[in-house]
């Protein structure tokens, strides 16, 4: 089985302080990498580096055997990134946010698919509500709904389960399993996911990675 995403000897410093060091990862299709670590251990930074927003100071990240920084445009089209913030416009409604998102990701989404996703995430009743009135958990559902709008092989998720109720967590787990069954890969920074789902874990702070 070929390696889809490979990280070698990754190192990142901020103001002369080493934040990430000796990060080595090899991910194959249908695998989940779960990233653990205390607050401030560099989880979010690592995810932003893997998503191609920040360049590491040393080491390499390869997607399908080519450095991501040599193919940034094509690479970033194949990933879906969800940071701590939800990336929604507070004055647009739930429905408008999804429309805007599908325009930005260049996906042809008709209203039928949109409504299906809204139904699936249990957001249908809120679809005409401006998102600034949504609770933290509802916002999180909305940003997870974006993941379902159009498929991409690589998910990079920063604390996706924060503020979600147990029903929301179940939705997420179902979506994740579906993603894996279509040979997707996920990299998730979280404390909440039970380890049985993830195939690899990376502990930050201790600077060691084990399978």
């Amino acid at each position: 089985m070929t390696t889809q995403l490979r990280i070698d000897q990754l190192q990142f410093e901020r103001q002369d302080e080493i934040i990430l060091q000796q990060i080595n990862v090899a991910l194959h299709a249908s695998e989940i990498l779960q990233i653990w670590g205390a607050n401030g251990s560099g989880k979010s930074t690592l995810l932003r580096i893997i998503a191609g927003f920040i360049e590491p100071h040393a080491g390499s990240i390869q997607w399908r055997n080519q450095s991501i920084f040599c193919q940034l445009d094509t690479y970033q089209q194949q990933l879906r990134y969800l940071g701590h913030q939800n990336g929604v416009k507070p004055s647009l409604t739930v429905y408008e946010n999804l429309c805007l998102y599908s325009a930005l990701t260049a996906s042809r989404i008709n209203s039928r698919i949109l409504n299906q996703v809204l139904d699936h995430m249990n957001l249908q009743s809120l679809s005409q509500t401006p998102t600034r009135y949504l609770s933290a958990g509802q916002l999180r559902r909305l940003s997870l709904a974006k993941l379902l709008l159009n498929p991409a092989p690589l998910w990079i998720l920063d604390e996706p389960l924060t503020a979600l109720d147990s029903e929301g967590q179940d939705f997420f787990k179902a979506a994740l399993l579906n993603h894996l069954s279509t040979e997707g890969i996920a990299i998730i920074a979280t404390h909440h996911l039970d380890l049985t789902l993830s195939t690899q874990t990376l502990h930050l702070g201790t600077l060691s990675s084990h399978v």
Partner: peptide, 19 residues
Amino acid sequence: AQTGYLDLLLLSPHPLSLL
């Protein structure tokens, strides 16, 4: 930037200059 929406703009497959 505060809402994280800029990340979506940067990840968009459309040319960033156009956006």
